[in-house]
């Protein structure tokens, strides 16, 4: 199964993992790496590399593009053929966890599928549209 590493600022990654498991059930090969501010980029990169070392294929999920957890993931995957999804959210992680079960494509194909559906994750619903229609 494709492994997932979530890396974020503060304990968002662990919280996201907890919330995801509440909905999608206990997950294997799902690691949370929390960056608490005073860790060096190179050290964080090593920590991310270590938790993903057992995964055959891996998708990295970070909270923000170009921020420190993202840069650390880049360091971790520098010598590999791999990718990072930026913009971690609960629907994104749940979709990843559900779709990777028995997935027959590559991690890259799965990541691209998730990117496509993630465009619907952020939405506005106004009360007047819901109740006064």
């Amino acid at each position: 199964m494709i492994g997932i590493v979530i890396a974020t600022h503060s304990d968002f990654a662990q919280g996201l993992k907890n919330a995801c498991e509440m909905i999608a059930g206990k997950q294997e090969s799902l690691e949370a790496v929390c960056f608490d501010g005073d860790e060096q980029l190179l050290d964080l990169g090593e920590r991310i590399k270590a938790v993903s070392s057992g995964f055959d294929q891996c998708i990295y999920v970070v909270d923000m593009l170009n921020a420190t957890p993202f840069n650390a993931c880049l360091l971790a995957i520098a010598q590999t053929d791999n990718m990072i999804i930026a913009g971690a959210s609960l629907p994104l992680l749940i979709e990843l966890c559900i779709k990777r079960q028995g997935y027959e494509g590559t991690a890259e194909q799965l990541a691209n599928e998730i990117l496509e559906s993630s465009k619907d994750y952020v939405a506005i619903r106004h009360s007047r549209d819901v109740f006064n229609g």
Binding site: M64, L65, N66, A67, T68, N71
Partner: peptide, 10 residues
């Protein structure tokens, strides 16, 4: 300390 990163830089 983190040089170029995230929202700060934006």
């Amino acid at each position: 300390e983190r040089l170029i990163h995230g929202q700060c830089m934006q």
